[in-house]
Write a protein that binds this DNA or RNA. Sequence first.
DNA 1: CTGAAAGCGCTTACAG
DNA 2: CTGAAAGCGCTTACAG
Lengths: 349, 349
Amino acid sequence: MTGHPLLVTLNEVRQSLSIKDVARIANVSHSTVSRALRDSPLVNPETAARIKKIALESSYRASAVARSLATSKTHTLGVVVATVADPFIAEVISGIEAAARQRGYSVFLANSDGVADRETSVVESFEERRVEGILVLASRVGSSYRTLLEKTSIPIVLINNYKFGDCAYSVDIDNVPASREATRHLIGLGHRRIAYLGDRFGFNSDTERFSGYRQELAAADIAFRPEFVVHGDGTPPGGEAAVQQLMQLPGRPTAVFCYDDMTALGALRGIRAAGLRVPEDVSVVGFDDLLIASYVEPALTTIRQPKEHMGTLATEMILNLLSGEKGEANVKVAGELIVRKSACPPAVP
Amino acid sequence: MTGHPLLVTLNEVRQSLSIKDVARIANVSHSTVSRALRDSPLVNPETAARIKKIALESSYRASAVARSLATSKTHTLGVVVATVADPFIAEVISGIEAAARQRGYSVFLANSDGVADRETSVVESFEERRVEGILVLASRVGSSYRTLLEKTSIPIVLINNYKFGDCAYSVDIDNVPASREATRHLIGLGHRRIAYLGDRFGFNSDTERFSGYRQELAAADIAFRPEFVVHGDGTPPGGEAAVQQLMQLPGRPTAVFCYDDMTALGALRGIRAAGLRVPEDVSVVGFDDLLIASYVEPALTTIRQPKEHMGTLATEMILNLLSGEKGEANVKVAGELIVRKSACPPAVP
DNA sequence: CTGAAAGCGCTTACAG
DNA sequence: CTGAAAGCGCTTACAG
């Protein structure tokens, strides 16, 4: 069959067809076209087939915006992150997008650069776009936008996020046990002088990881030494600077447990800069298991976070919520110790 | 002022207000509300102020979907990538999103996992959502979806993408000169036995980078040796496997120029696995300058791609297009050699 | 099984 | 400066 004349004409116009155009070609009402295209049982199978064929050949694309207005469902989710250019965040997004797409949802992505104002305006724009749910990722933005988040009627789930008191929905890595496991690994190797290289003060995961570290020290009857606690800022340079303080200490630590892999990367450098070797002189353990962790020299022993899975989980949580199912509202996922080459028994126990 | 009674009631319903609700509270027609909120000069300043105040207090959010239907502009862009969880891609996205947001556009993000079918269906869904432009990133999907891309009436710009013949809009790294510069650097260091560790066959950037390598060899009167060309697949394991073949060669190369940093990461490992040192025994140069490149040991000498900038450029290209300005349709950006520690003069020249 | 009608929440000529 | 009306492209009771 060659193109229907009207159809060809319309094609040339290069302007997207509406349901009425299709109806005209098929010689039915646009209601019938709508039904046929949505596989309603209320339409004669032959008519439906004919309509579908026409729609296909004319490459008609139903307008999701018109449909959204009519049904008041956009099948759209909003994701706000500080930056996509963070390997941890990127993997979580990957899990979110896959889960969303699988269930017919599209995702808007916005960067806030960690600026509270921008985060606020992003959420507002998501509200205007009538997203059905919002995922906030690893934001360190504090309570300044707390009210905003509380005011919106769109369900929000926070992933590894800074929390201000209670929050309705969240998925988080279970920091304390993971952190204890990392510390225990070091203790098991024979270390007693173990330092903690944290993040900036006041963030939940830093607090929790630090707490796991202390608990495990206590469990092993190792005295806590305040001078063995230093703080970076979640970046390699931050870790590098902080580890230097540690290395200058008389009776310096033989192992350092780092808040995250980025910090650990900096620690690796800083230790080398101090003329020491990893792991022979000082062992290093990270947290996250970024791709880079296994390509660094020595390959980093670290705690793996199931990043994609966390994204998937959060998305399903919100999607289930939208379809009325209630489930766990604050889920924690387990980390996993990945033993590589950056930690070994201490030379001087 | 305490809340207006009607306003409070509406708030409690927790259902987003419409322009009519605001109109009712303000005692004007919804047309006037619309004008006031869009800063139309056609409305009395005092009335406008009153309306805005009410809108603010009731946290009214205009529906972007209704507006889109009315204006047939969605202020929306679609980005399709193989995967967000690729550091190169993530940085480009970051540039795209920032440029888009700055001009009032939101971006849909979708992963195709490099599967042609998925890429097709993503583009279809973008068409239904009436995105105004589509950015395709670093896709290796071949000509299978060529027709799709040609059929759609939405402007598409390809970034570092596989091309099938001509394409309307694109931004690409200028591979040949960048690749020549990398090769020249190695030659300048005194190397003569320089290998090329490429990507899988048939992709544009591999072809172009390879071509730059050959051109520079020729310019320096160094004979091209086919056995010095091997292929990875753009992943560290691929690079690791490929470099081993090189290292086993009698009269093995003293330097290897890698298609990209991921490949180079693998090469670093493979060279070490062969009992050789980098850079003393063999020099390595990468391409991309991922964050990881500077944290690997030895830090990688590589070609930097201005990733964010490329995203910004592509976005502005498409946005300008939409506002009727014509500009360069196929832009190339320059790479930059970043000298670090993975390349030095050869031990045996 | 099918069509005419109303409605989703906006924008914007048109008339006053 | 303001309002009533039409229209954007769908969906979906309602009537036949």
